[in-house]
């Protein structure tokens, strides 16, 4: 119990094992690269060629799945942060529970952003396999990938922000009812940053015809 936090094998041990993994992967990759370079097949280690060899469908579908996946992850994360504090604070002050459901809804909205964007991106896919190797198709694939990643990451961070401020809102409201509206304003500003990702995602994906 509590092995991660005891002094002997504490946080330090946990940290070093993750960095060990990082260094291991890094040096493994380096070894493969060096091996290829020194055995005369270094040209195969070409990033550009790799990118072009991946189908544009792969890129765009990856973008869509990242978009909705990260957004839902952010929303879920926010809801559990808010929810845990809300049930705790609600024991002593039951009046806050209904009012603070708005924080949960704010988190939920983040997932809906991701869902909407995923639907918009899906509409841009075409099943015309004739033009799959044209430069337009490649552009579209890359655009959808990065648009999806932008939206997904923005929504992930936004969900956490709303979750943390929502949990503070619940605790503050339980302590003093007048604080609720004030903290809610902060929460609203937090929830807006998800929209920024949404807008940029729309713009980027809109360029691909």
């Amino acid at each position: 119990m509590g092995a991660y936090y005891t002094r002997d094998n504490g946080g330090g041990g946990y940290y070093s094992s993750s960095s060990l993994l990082f260094y291991g992967a890094f040096s493994g990759l380096g070894l493969v690269g060096l091996y290829m370079l020194l055995t005369g097949s270094g040209e195969q280690f070409a990033v550009g060629e790799f990118l072009l060899s991946v189908s544009p469908y792969m890129w765009s579908l990856l973008g869509i799945s990242l978009c909705v996946g990260l957004s839902v992850g952010g929303a879920a994360w926010g809801i559990f942060i808010t929810g845990a504090s809300l049930v705790g604070a609600g024991v002593h002050a039951p009046r806050i529970v209904t009012k603070n459901l708005i924080s949960i809804i704010f988190c939920e909205v983040v997932a809906i952003y991701g869902l909407i964007m995923a639907i918009v991106f899906t509409a841009k896919l075409s099943d015309d396999t004739q033009t799959i190797s044209s430069s337009e198709a490649y552009y579209k694939g890359f655009a959808l990938f990065w648009a999806g990643l932008t939206t997904g990451l923005c929504n992930l961070v936004c969900g956490i922000t709303v979750g943390v401020s929502g949990s503070s809102a619940a605790l503050a409201d339980a302590q003093d009812g007048q604080l609720f509206v004030k903290v809610l304003v902060i929460e609203i500003f937090g929830s807006i940053i998800g929209l920024f990702g949404l807008i940029v995602g729309l713009l980027v994906s809109g360029k691909g015809v």
Binding site: F80, I81, S85, G88, Q175
Partner: peptide, 23 residues
């Protein structure tokens, strides 16, 4: 700490703050 704290201890924090307000 805001990211993971509530997974285990968020409920209890709320409870303790409730107790605190009855001081």
């Amino acid at each position: 700490e805001g990211l993971f704290y509530n997974a285990d201890d968020g409920y209890l924090e709320g409870i303790v703050r409730g107790y605190r307000s009855s001081i």
